[in-house]
Write a protein that binds this DNA or RNA. Structure first.
Length: 435
DNA sequence: GCGTGTTTATGCAGAG
DNA sequence: CTCTGCATAAACACGC
């Protein structure tokens, strides 16, 4: 399957965007349906997408212990297991050692990544047969068969992950680069290409807002944060292709006519009332939309907020107010109306200040929409930062990582294994591009 | 010069 | 078939 047409959307290699349509199968209860998970010959073909519901699988899944997955073929797992990332309940999957027999799984990477997860998973997982796993890892055929694929995440998803995993919920461009490279060795090559795409995605997509640096944190480039409603982009559960792009109508109108029309509302109908990102596109800071957990950094991040009015013209300041009102609207009512900006601003400040004292999960704090959707990127990233490592583990991307990038210093990120050049040779990053 | 950020253009692919 | 989301390339501007 992975040999299908290379490309970012390669549905055959990743399970494809069909996952989006599978999100409704998210109430898999207990062991019952999973008992049919044996697809010894067709390689989980029928499982595509179905696995995406595993996120809500109750801990009772541990009783089946992934045993049914033993026959899974790595290729078909690829994608279909992607949405397993939110398997917050995997802590009870203490029989997951059975996955060691997954065909095509790059065990060394998988296991090493899982080691990082062990902190959150059942300690019994530590008893998995690592020798067997390592033996499998030594089989290069094993590894090469399924690790050459591009991660089935869109750049938007990757950026979102990078930002979400950041303690401050904001990243510099270089940090985003590093995060992606650490997590997906695929992106350790052709950096010029995909990094350009990353930059384009950051600038082009309204879901990403720029947060200027403060004088006490000098450096190149701004911070990038998520628009508070960005988590809702993935509410459909598909990390690969959003059903609706997050757009800011005001920003759009500003782009087209420079008109300061304070019209509100998402072009994305599922989003809340006010669509203006908290960065107005002119460098107006987001005002630490995602409250940094570190007080010092937080104060640093929020510092520009008080300076904004002096640096903005009236229209910008006006937009800024609406932006902030949007924050509140979104947090209060996903389908909220567009009025009462000032009230909303006050509410926002209140909310934010209250949030400072709350021990909320980052996603809960920053993305009010995402808390209730198991497939939300935000939910995925906030509730279990290692969840997406499960994807790496299962899909075999970790084969090149040797250890969890999340659990090691970025500097320690191992270089790509040169001897695995085939990893990329058989795969063009994009169907329209040629290596 | 290099990294960063913006913008435009083009093509592919999925959804309706 | 059309619309839309996304990837990619490229040009350009800006600041360190």
């Amino acid at each position: 399957m992975l040999s299908a047409k290379p490309g970012s959307y390669d549905p055959t290699s990743s399970g494809g965007y069909s996952m989006a349509s599978m999100t409704s199968i998210n109430t898999m209860g207990g062991v019952g349906p999973m008992s049919n998970m044996n697809y010894p010959s067709q390689g989980m073909g029928g499982m595509h997408g179905a696995m995406s519901s595993m996120n809500t699988m109750p801990p009772s899944m541990g009783s089946m212990g992934m045993g049914g997955m033993a026959a899974m073929h790595g290729s078909s797992m690829h994608g279909s297991m992607t949405a397993m990332n939110p398997m917050n309940t995997m802590g009870s999957m203490n029989s997951m050692g059975a996955m060691g027999s997954m065909n095509g799984m790059s065990s060394i990477g998988s296991m090493s990544s899982m080691n990082g997860m062990n902190r959150q998973m059942d300690p019994n997982m530590m008893s998995m047969d690592r020798a067997q796993a390592l033996n499998r890892a030594r089989d290069k055929n094993y590894r090469r068969s399924y690790t050459h694929a591009k991660p089935p995440y869109s750049y938007i998803s990757l950026i979102t992950m990078a930002i979400q995993q950041s303690p401050n919920k904001m990243c510099t461009l270089s940090e985003i680069y590093q995060f992606i490279m650490d997590l997906f060795p695929f992106y350790r090559q052709n950096q010029q290409r995909w990094q350009n795409s990353i930059r384009h995605s950051l600038s082009f997509n309204d879901c990403f807002v720029k947060v200027p640096r403060t004088p006490d944190r000098p450096g190149k480039g701004s911070y990038w944060a998520l628009h508070p409603d960005s988590g809702n982009m993935f509410e459909n559960g598909c990390y690969l292709r959003r059903q609706k792009r997050f757009k800011c109508l005001k920003k759009e109108s500003m782009r087209s006519s420079h008109d300061d029309d304070p019209s509100c509302g998402m072009s994305n109908g599922q989003n809340s009332a006010d669509s203006t990102p908290t960065s107005t596109g002119d460098g107006t800071p987001l005002s630490a939309p995602n409250t940094p957990p570190h007080p010092v950094e937080q104060s640093q991040m929020t510092q520009p907020k008080t300076e904004q009015p002096t640096h903005q013209n009236h229209s910008q300041a006006h937009v800024q107010q609406q932006d902030m009102s949007h924050l509140t609207h979104s947090s209060q009512n996903q389908m909220g109306n567009c009025g009462t900006e000032l009230t909303s601003m006050r509410q926002l400040h209140h909310d934010m200040s209250m949030n400072h004292g709350l021990n909320l999960a980052p996603g809960q704090l920053n993305h009010p929409h995402s808390f209730n959707h198991p497939f939300s990127i935000t939910n995925l990233m906030s509730e279990n930062k290692m969840d997406f490592k499960m994807y790496e583990a299962i899909s075999g991307y970790g084969a090149y990582t040797q250890m969890s990038p999340m659990s090691m210093p970025k500097e320690a990120s191992p270089p790509m294994n040169a001897q695995d050049g085939s990893y990329y040779k058989t795969y063009a990053p994009h169907s329209t591009a040629s290596l």
